[in-house]
Computed example of a mutant assay.
Amino acid sequence: MLIKQMNKGRKYRLKEAYEALRTFEILGLGKELNVRASTCSSAVDTLGSSTSSLKDLFCELRANALLKCEINEQVFAGIASRLKASVHDANSLLDFYYSVGSLRVIKDQTSEVDVSLADADGIFQSIKALSQSDGRWRSGPSNPGSSTFAAGIALETLAGVVSLAITEINQSLIGMLNSDVMKLFDGIEKYDDGAYYFEEKLGDARENQGPLSATSMVVRGLTAFAAATSGNLKLPGDKIFGFAIFFLGIGIPGNAKDLYNQIDALACLESNRSE
């Protein structure tokens, strides 16, 4: 059913399409799919449009990274120019996340387009300004609420800033982020079997991501930042092992979103262990 939905093109939401492709890739089933034509057609349309949202660009660029669609270098260059402007104009964590994340994906797909960030320290500090004393993050300067899920988004975004920086990020900023991570771990939950996870604590139930979603997002952020800083981010070994126990203990999730979160987080942990 999932493959049939993906073959419907844009009727299937871009984010879910990417998550399905990523899940199949991790499971080693990507080559068996017959969705390249329809998905690439959608990617070409979205990436070639000047009105596509930052979120849609991000999703299609990630899907393209998996499917290797034929995208003109000039298209990438135009997107990169727009994204750089968006980074400097960003006023929310998601604006930073989609813009920086998209530039990072373009960097992995072509060496012919300049995606470097000249004021990486300033961008890093702008994102860091959204962090809270307990290690969680706000989604924007006008939003007083904070979440663990947002912390994961912030960490992954900052990893992108580090990888796109023209010059090395100020080490004092890396040190402050290490402190934030340790504070975040202070709020971690534990099962009797040694599994570690994050229980989202939000006043607004509409934004509640649940333990699986929140924990997987934090794992993505932690492993991405650890990789970007060549191990400068110190991850407690027992907590990392406990995360793996948590994801493996879930069994087979009942929906595609949860399966993606489980499988992708485990892949991130394995990648971090191998580096």
Rank of each mutant, 00 (worst) to 15 (best):
F124G: 06
F124W: 06
Q125M: 02
S126R: 15
S126H: 10
K128Q: 11
K128F: 05
A129C: 11
L130W: 08
L130Y: 12
L130T: 00
S131M: 01
S131F: 06
Q132W: 02
Q132M: 07
S133L: 01
S133M: 06
D134P: 01
R136S: 11
W137E: 08
S139P: 01
G140I: 06
G140Q: 10
P141A: 01
P144Y: 03
P144A: 00
P144F: 00
G145D: 15
S146L: 03
S146D: 15
S147H: 14
S147V: 14
T148A: 02
F149C: 04
A150Y: 06
A150P: 00
A150H: 09
A150C: 06
G152Q: 04
G152F: 09
G152I: 04
L155P: 13
T157D: 02
T157K: 03
T157V: 01
T157H: 00
L158K: 04
G160S: 06
G160W: 08
V161M: 00
V161T: 08
V161Q: 01
V162T: 15
S163K: 07
L164T: 07
I166K: 15
E168A: 11
I169F: 05
I169Y: 03
S172K: 13
S172C: 09
S172Q: 12
L173E: 01
L173K: 03
I174E: 00
I174N: 00
I174P: 00
I174K: 00
M176P: 02
M176H: 12
L177T: 02
N178I: 07
N178P: 07
N178D: 08
N178Y: 01
S179H: 05
V181E: 08
V181L: 06
V181T: 11
V181K: 04
M182R: 13
M182L: 14
M182H: 15
K183M: 13
K183Q: 13
L184Y: 00
L184M: 02
D186F: 07
D186K: 07
G187M: 12
G187T: 05
K190P: 11
Y191F: 12
Y191L: 14
Y191V: 14
Y191M: 09
D192L: 09
D193L: 13
D193H: 10
G194D: 07
A195D: 03
A195P: 02
Y196I: 13
F198T: 12
E199G: 14
E199N: 10
E199K: 14
E199L: 11
E200D: 05
E200G: 07
